[in-house]
Computed example of a mutant assay.
Amino acid sequence: MMNLSFVVAQSKDSRLKYLSQEDGLSSSVVVDIVQDNYGFIWFATRNGLNRYDGYSFKTFTNDPNNVNSIPVDRLTCLLIDKNGNFWIGSLDGLVWFTWIMIRKLFL
């Protein structure tokens, strides 16, 4: 687990950019980070899944009234496998999304 009050992203001009909750990150506790084939950076946090596009965050949290939402907010790990499937881990188990599902639900 990484208990960070900020995370760092690299912009096109190769300068470091510090990101925090003030920038829209849903939690200061980031437990995993992956970058997808489209360039989005995904953050697993203790308060949901965050997608960063280089400019702003979009946060995905559990919504009990929406069957398409992520199942829990307290995440433990992320993985993009060789087939492009997106795996989200939590203490309650694993959830996987195909890129077709990701585009439909999260992009």
Rank of each mutant, 00 (worst) to 15 (best):
D53P: 04
F6V: 05
W96K: 09
G93E: 05
K104H: 10
W42D: 09
W99R: 08
N66A: 06
N3Q: 13
E22Y: 12
G93R: 01
N3F: 09
V30R: 02
N50V: 06
W87C: 03
L79A: 10
M2P: 07
T45Q: 08
S5D: 14
L75V: 04
G48C: 05
I80R: 00
K58A: 12
R15W: 03
D81P: 00
W96A: 13
I70L: 03
V29F: 08
E22I: 08
T76F: 00
D73F: 00
I41Q: 10
F60R: 11
W42E: 11
N50G: 04
N65L: 14
W99N: 13
D53Y: 05
Y55Q: 15
K82H: 12
L4G: 14
L49D: 11
L105G: 06
Y18W: 06
K12S: 14
Y38G: 07
G48D: 10
F106C: 05
R74G: 01
M101I: 09
N83K: 10
M101C: 07
I33V: 15
V7N: 05
D32I: 06
N85V: 01
F97H: 12
G84M: 07
R51V: 05
W96S: 15
L19G: 04
S5E: 14
N47Q: 12
F43P: 06
L91V: 13
N50C: 11
L105T: 07
S56F: 05
N65P: 00
N62S: 12
Y52E: 06
K12T: 08
T98W: 04
F40I: 09
L107G: 07
L107T: 13
R15L: 11
L94P: 00
S26W: 02
I80S: 03
M101L: 14
M1E: 12
Y38A: 14
D32C: 04
F43Q: 10
T76L: 02
G54V: 02
D36N: 07
I102C: 15
L25S: 06
W96Q: 14
L4D: 13
G84E: 07
V34A: 03
M1C: 05
N68Q: 11
L107C: 13
I80W: 03
V8K: 09
I80Q: 02
F43N: 08
K17Q: 13
G93H: 02
I100M: 10
A44F: 03
Q35R: 15
